[in-house]
Amino acid sequence: MRVNFTVNGRPQEADDVWEGESLLYVLRERMGLPGSKNACEQGECGSCTVRLDGVPVCSCLVAAGQVQGREVVTVEGLADYARQRSCGTGGCGTSLEESRQWQAKGTDSRTGEGTELAPIQQAFIDAGAVQCGFCTPGLLVAADEMLERNPDPTDADIREALSGNLCRCTGYEKIMDAVRLAAARQGGAV
């Protein structure tokens, strides 16, 4: 079957989709967007988290045919998504965080150096929340959405919001640090 939907703001079309394919498979194998990860494919790890019409979901549990006509944001589109959000809330062009990012040079394709990042992405790097990185994309999408809803979360709020995302490397301490850091920077920038 054919499926048309919007991914990271761009209309996409997938052809010859097998009816049993998940959104995760279509993103990874048909759209060249492997950022959403395939760690469990049973909704138990959160590594495939994307936003479907704004809502964080496990893309492994969404049948490809279900996204016809809908909007998906993946980790690959997170920076754009965050930038548009800050524009929408009047923060455009004024945030220190943003201006710092805009100063970055052109992207180095080998290291990603110079890539514009969402605040939560930068915080994950800065706080040491990334080790193997396989859980990272899902955690970023989930954490970014939580900070959108709850800009000043308590530790218990953060833990609850991220309780659907498994990480095997970090023991979560640096992930907590990263989300606190992103919240603090977000608070300071507005």
Binding site: G32, P34, K37, V75, E76, T111, Q122, I125, G133, T136
Partner: peptide
């Protein structure tokens, strides 16, 4: 020093190519 990971940016943008991402 606590220098940051050289692969950090690739990992947070989803561009880092894991073995299951090969195509």
């Amino acid at each position: 020093e606590s220098t940051l990971r050289p692969d950090g940016t690739l990992k947070v943008t989803g561009e880092f190519a894991y073995s299951s991402d090969m195509w």
